[in-house]
Simulated assay, not measured.
Amino acid sequence: MDIPGDRRLAAAVVMDDRERVLLVRRSEKERFLPRVWGVPCGKLEPGECPEDGVLRELKEETGLRGVVVRKVGESSFLSEYRGHEIKNWQDNFLVSPLPGQIVLPEPDQDSRWLHRSELTDVDIDEYNLDVVLQAFTHS
């Protein structure tokens, strides 16, 4: 059986020139945090640097391209895979979006641009909220 070890991830806090952050609602089909709002994030490919991975994940999850502004922090969390605990290590980046249309992979997903004061208007979990606040703290 293929049991993964620690996982490396990268998250994009996408902030526009009006200091609004892009949040995406996960599909109800997701095993992990279905229908919860958060930032574009995902696993790095083998040998992929976090800066490249975060831009790839942004494109895959939103259809947007962007430019990494800076790394704003790190996060970690535990998850489970086939009965085994996995430690997830995540690099968090502030990303400036390039012009384009948001295209979400699943029809039941949604996206919103929110100011800092509006972040808790959606069902965002504490973990994703902390990731977003890292970008504001380090600006």
Rank of each mutant, 00 (worst) to 15 (best):
residue 1 M to D: 11
residue 1 M to G: 09
residue 2 D to W: 05
residue 2 D to H: 10
residue 2 D to P: 12
residue 5 G to R: 02
residue 7 R to V: 02
residue 7 R to Q: 10
residue 7 R to C: 08
residue 7 R to I: 03
residue 8 R to D: 06
residue 8 R to P: 02
residue 12 A to Q: 08
residue 13 V to W: 03
residue 14 V to D: 04
residue 15 M to A: 10
residue 16 D to I: 11
residue 17 D to K: 12
residue 17 D to S: 12
residue 18 R to N: 05
residue 19 E to A: 03
residue 19 E to R: 05
residue 20 R to D: 05
residue 21 V to A: 10
residue 22 L to G: 05
residue 23 L to C: 15
residue 25 R to D: 08
residue 25 R to E: 08
residue 26 R to C: 00
residue 28 E to P: 00
residue 29 K to N: 07
residue 30 E to T: 04
residue 31 R to P: 08
residue 33 L to D: 06
residue 35 R to P: 01
residue 35 R to L: 11
residue 36 V to E: 09
residue 37 W to H: 04
residue 39 V to R: 03
residue 40 P to K: 15
residue 40 P to N: 13
residue 40 P to A: 12
residue 41 C to K: 07
residue 42 G to S: 11
residue 42 G to C: 14
residue 42 G to M: 15
residue 43 K to E: 06
residue 43 K to I: 01
residue 44 L to Y: 09
residue 47 G to F: 07
residue 50 P to Q: 10
residue 51 E to K: 00
residue 52 D to G: 07
residue 52 D to L: 15
residue 53 G to N: 14
residue 53 G to C: 08
residue 55 L to A: 02
residue 58 L to R: 15
residue 58 L to K: 15
residue 59 K to D: 10
residue 60 E to H: 10
residue 60 E to V: 00
residue 61 E to V: 08
residue 63 G to N: 06
residue 64 L to V: 00
residue 64 L to C: 05
residue 66 G to N: 15
residue 67 V to I: 08
residue 68 V to M: 15
residue 71 K to H: 06
residue 71 K to E: 11
residue 71 K to I: 04
residue 72 V to N: 14
residue 73 G to W: 14
residue 74 E to A: 14
residue 77 F to N: 08
residue 77 F to S: 07
residue 78 L to K: 15
residue 79 S to L: 14
residue 82 R to M: 13
residue 82 R to N: 13
residue 83 G to I: 01
residue 84 H to G: 05
residue 85 E to A: 02
residue 87 K to A: 10
residue 89 W to R: 08
residue 91 D to N: 11
residue 92 N to V: 11
residue 93 F to E: 11
residue 95 V to A: 07
residue 97 P to M: 15
residue 98 L to V: 01
residue 99 P to E: 06
residue 99 P to L: 02
residue 99 P to Q: 03
residue 100 G to D: 14
residue 100 G to E: 15
residue 100 G to A: 05
residue 100 G to Y: 10
residue 102 I to T: 07
residue 103 V to D: 04
residue 103 V to K: 15
residue 104 L to T: 01
residue 104 L to S: 04
residue 105 P to Y: 02
residue 105 P to M: 03
residue 106 E to V: 00
residue 106 E to L: 02
residue 106 E to A: 04
residue 106 E to Q: 12
residue 107 P to M: 13
residue 107 P to H: 14
residue 108 D to P: 01
residue 109 Q to P: 06
residue 109 Q to R: 09
residue 110 D to M: 01
residue 111 S to C: 03
residue 111 S to P: 01
residue 112 R to M: 03
residue 112 R to W: 01
residue 114 L to S: 06
residue 114 L to M: 14
residue 115 H to W: 10
residue 116 R to D: 00
residue 117 S to Y: 14
residue 119 L to S: 03
residue 119 L to C: 03
residue 120 T to R: 15
residue 121 D to K: 15
residue 122 V to T: 07
residue 123 D to T: 00
residue 123 D to A: 06
residue 123 D to L: 04
residue 124 I to E: 08
residue 124 I to C: 04
residue 125 D to W: 04
residue 128 N to C: 09
residue 132 V to D: 04
residue 137 T to P: 01
residue 137 T to S: 12
residue 138 H to K: 03
residue 138 H to L: 08
